[in-house]
Amino acid sequence: MPSTNAAPSRLKTTITGIALAALPAILFALALLLGRYPIGPLDVGRSLLSPIFPKLGADIPEIARRLVLRVRLPRALAALLIGASYGGTGAAFQAIFKNPLVDSNILGVTSGAGFGAALALLLLRNEWQVQLFAFAFGLLAVGLAFFGSRLYKSSPLLVLTLMGILVGSLFGSLTSLLKYVADPLDTLPAITFWLLGSLSSITWSSLPVLAFVTLLGVFFLWLIRWRLNILSLGDAEARALGVNPARSKLCIIIVATLMTAAAVSVSGVIGWVGLVIPHAGRLLVGPDHKRLMPASILMGASFLLLIDNIARTLLPGEIPLGVLTGLVGVPVLALLLRRGRRGW
């Protein structure tokens, strides 16, 4: 049995690790170099250094300097952070729900955030208020699902999943209601634009909250990564191994929800990444979360950078991210499944 018995050799593990770490860096560099507005690599480099060495930026056209520093850089950083966030939370949720078919949206955070954003667009129309509402309603949805599930005593995980689906549907319907009452010429396009998910309106002002929440969250997920193995065995076994599963899960749900809400509130709804990246990660490094968590974080970041690079450069019009995540992600995953091992 060549494939299953082969111990992942130290060399192979190291190579995979270096590749996974290098990929986001390469794609990040590409994100700064590529764009619809032609800027030479040297100019990009000098633009990046110009805040520190103003002399370097002296002979670069102002428009190029601004595009690199104020448009490409924050957008690439956002893609990196949001991708890492989706990858990491997806892996964590799949572990604690013992189910490889969920992502951090299972408890309705995206539906809640979508509703919050739609509500703010309908009533207030201010960018930071939309973000605030999206964030708050994302948390509210998960809170409802979580405390709703406490009403039932049996099989907490199943009830929690069910409540998540219920709350998600509820907020989905409420969003549809808002879309129904929204002015088709006025508010509706804004709501639709937001719900489709896009990184095109990212600016530096979107970043501080996103970066703060995501970096702390990713660090937490990285720390707790090995413990996810134990949580994925189920509550009884985890307790027998001296782990308090309820407390650990609550912490993870809170952190992942904060991260997802922060991501959704700046980018709108980008599906698919959190669900599929952990699968790809498992095929590359195996199911042990000690390696899988960093792999999912890095692969999520790489994937979203790749997708966004395509989305913003291929055509004059932005290609919706949701379209590309599927179009690019499915063949990549199929390829990995073909060469990968069996089981999750």
């Binding site: 413990r227 193995n229 994925s232 199911p287 042990d288 089981g343």
Partner: peptide
């Protein structure tokens, strides 16, 4: 019971170190 993810034997035994 069958765990949701196919950990290796080594990884399964390692979980005994959790406490």
């Amino acid at each position: 019971h069958t765990p949701a993810f196919s950990y290796t034997v080594n990884e399964m035994v390692m979980m005994g170190r959790a406490p």
